[in-house]
Design a protein around this nucleic acid. Sequence first.
DNA 1: CTTTGGGCCTGGACGC
DNA 2: TGCGTCCAGGCCCAAA
Length: 281
Amino acid sequence: MPELPEVETVRRGLAPVLEGAAFARVHLRRADLRKPFPVDFVERLEGARIKRTGRRAKYLLIETHDDTLIWHLGMSGQVRIYPPGEPPPLVGKHDHVQFDLSNGAVIVFTDPRRFGLMDLCPSEKVAEHPLIKDIGPEPLGNAFSGPVLAAALKGKKVAIKQAIIDSHVVAGVGNIYASESLFRAGLSPKRRAGTVQGARAEKLAGAIKSVLSAAIEAGGSTLKDHRTTDGELGYFQHSFAVYGRTGQACPGCDCDVLKTKGIQHLEQGGRSTYYCPRHQR
DNA sequence: CTTTGGGCCTGGACGC
DNA sequence: TGCGTCCAGGCCCAAA
């Protein structure tokens, strides 16, 4: 499911409910998702007070005094908050984890495809965690800029589309926002990554920032699975310029769909890419 | 070192 | 209605 904007949307929903509360009970309904849960997962969390919520790339970071819960939503993960006083939810087939909080709220993690994962890590060591340590800069942070992106792309022979979904290059950009960013930057997804330097890198870095920021403001994009923690749909999918719009008119140029072919679809590294060949070079 | 491809899972859409 | 096939927002890891 989720790329950076969807995970950030979930984090923003969780923050006011989690911060300052403690995990009262943790219900684990299976031993593993993509990876096994730590054997002492429940006992380490129960009773722990939550100091803050964070996010690194597509990982949610739920920081308690001792441990930080590192939580990935995978492809199909959803997080739902049931406020205090709501009747306890029925346990669904794919509801794998439930957190009962000291403030009475209940958090349920549902993940049909089970590509999500949870791990625990001493809070002071999160940056060195194997899942986290090699991730590139946060695209919305000051550490990400045209020159930084250019340096990461230098010498790369893969297509720029594949380069920007590589988490070592920049954190949190997945398949949808890669297409959308390249559209905003006017760059062809097929262009060799190493040729994106100087002004082109500047433009692409700016495009990544702008599209991710806009998507967060819209509560993310809901294609199938993504929901906010209230169960609401995101609505940025209505703002897609190219993703999933094969054959439709390009919103960035005046190409006549009857004469040209409009938005095109191609496959790169086994993933779908969408772009306008006239608008993007 | 970089790049590619397989694998992990389920469910929904589609064609017959 | 039922069955098979294909596709999906991620990412790890082995192999080339």
